[in-house]
């Protein structure tokens, strides 16, 4: 899935997806749950607390 497609499904900009991937932005719970919903994966499989 492209960054643009994920961004559109989640309702954020592509730059926000890039920032999340690069660990430069921690998304809100709402966006985190939407991302896990898109991938049909539990939240802890996608995000880790460091």
């Amino acid at each position: 899935m492209s960054q643009q497609t994920l961004a559109e499904k989640v309702g954020v900009t592509r730059q926000t997806i890039i920032a999340i991937e690069k660990d430069k932005y921690s998304p809100s719970l709402e966006v985190a749950f939407k991302i896990s919903d898109v991938f049909q994966e539990p939240l802890e499989n996608i995000f880790q607390y460091k």
Partner: peptide, 9 residues
């Protein structure tokens, strides 16, 4: 084209 503003902005 895209001028959407989200929570990060």
């Amino acid at each position: 084209k895209s001028q959407l503003e989200d929570e990060r902005d």
